[in-house]
Computed example of a mutant assay.
Amino acid sequence: MKATAIAHPIQGLAKYHGMRDPELRLPYHDSISVCTAPSHTRTTADFESDREADVYVVDGEELSGRGEERVRAVVDRVRKLAGFDERVRLESENSFPSNVGFGSSSSGFAAAAMALCAAAELDLSRPEISTVARRGSSSAARAVTGAFSQLHTGLNDHDCRSERIESELEDELRIVAGLVPAYKETERAHEEAADSHMFGARMAHMHGQIAELRDALRSGDFERTFELAEHDSLSLAATTMTGPAGWVYWQPETIAIFNRIRELRDDGVPAYYSTDTGASVYVNTTEEHVDRVERAVSECGVDTHVWEVGGPARIVDDPLF
């Protein structure tokens, strides 16, 4: 019982922050994201009847501590759904840098959930598999369904699952990723989210923002979609910076990119910046303007990648072992 899956990481557009249930990873509110390709995680899972213990390897290193616990939560959920207790060997590789704000946990747990469910011979839809991936990372639920997706909040797996939002922007969008390699700690930021005095204000406007963003995607309104994403990045930063630990993820290069994108926009270029929990920056633009935007971002002294919209997690015939 062996299977391999690929999943693309997400860029948060209306980002979740904090969890009402950290074990099941149930977020306080809905969230919407877009998957980025060709960046991806590839994962192979193999349930073996004669194996004595689980083994989890990511980018050549065996996991321990909190990383191991998070993978085990996904594996245990699959074992429960499958009705067996076989041990598993799971190996994963990323095609892009991790722990720098590019969503490696989303693609990692999405690919793991997809591969594990296939290896366990579970016949599940992608929204159902998204509830498995969510136990490792809430953002991974959206990486399972792919492209533009919305994770609905809820208190159980029937409600708290991801669905894809169809949008004509899938073909038009180009994402210039500016790599600012500053390590970040997302887990701790989520743990203290509700302790920020800005958290209540964020909660108050998220419901309306989700509705507006979903409508903008459905209608193919590029400017409204990514203006909302840009504003959400500022709102998230305000919440993390005003928590007990005073998290400040942005670096000088981050701010330089923000300012350069504003200058481009003043010059008529459709470009909007966005950040997740980290210093790296996504710049959302169109195919027509992507070369100019990439030059502008690279002039800020950072490495760049140009990505398109990635599809859902999928099974492939290219195992890691």
Score class of each variant (00 low, 15 high):
A3S: 13
A5F: 06
I6Y: 10
P9H: 05
L13H: 10
L24W: 03
S31K: 07
T36I: 12
T41K: 04
R42Y: 09
D46E: 14
D50T: 14
A53P: 03
V55D: 07
E62V: 03
E62W: 14
L63E: 09
L63K: 12
R66E: 11
E69C: 06
E69K: 10
A73W: 06
V75W: 02
D76K: 10
K80C: 09
L81H: 06
A82F: 11
R89A: 15
S95Y: 02
V100Q: 04
G103V: 04
G103H: 07
S105P: 03
S106E: 00
F109G: 01
A110I: 03
A112K: 07
A113H: 02
A118I: 00
A119P: 03
D123N: 15
D123C: 06
R126W: 13
S138C: 11
S139C: 08
V144W: 03
A147V: 03
L151M: 05
T153G: 12
G154K: 00
C160S: 13
R161T: 05
S167I: 01
D171I: 06
D171C: 05
E172A: 14
L179G: 01
L179K: 05
V180R: 00
E185S: 12
T186M: 08
R188K: 15
H190G: 04
E192H: 10
D195P: 05
D195H: 11
S196T: 02
H197R: 14
G200T: 10
G200Y: 05
A211R: 12
R214I: 02
D215I: 08
A216M: 08
S219R: 10
G220L: 00
L228Y: 06
A229N: 07
D232V: 00
L234Y: 15
A237C: 09
A238D: 13
T239L: 10
P252F: 11
P252R: 10
T254M: 04
I257V: 11
I261Y: 08
R265E: 02
D267P: 05
Y273K: 08
T277M: 11
T277V: 10
E287Q: 11
R295P: 05
V297S: 05
E299R: 13
W307T: 13
W307D: 12
E308L: 07
G311H: 10
A313M: 14
V316G: 01
V316N: 07
V316F: 07
V316R: 04
D318F: 05
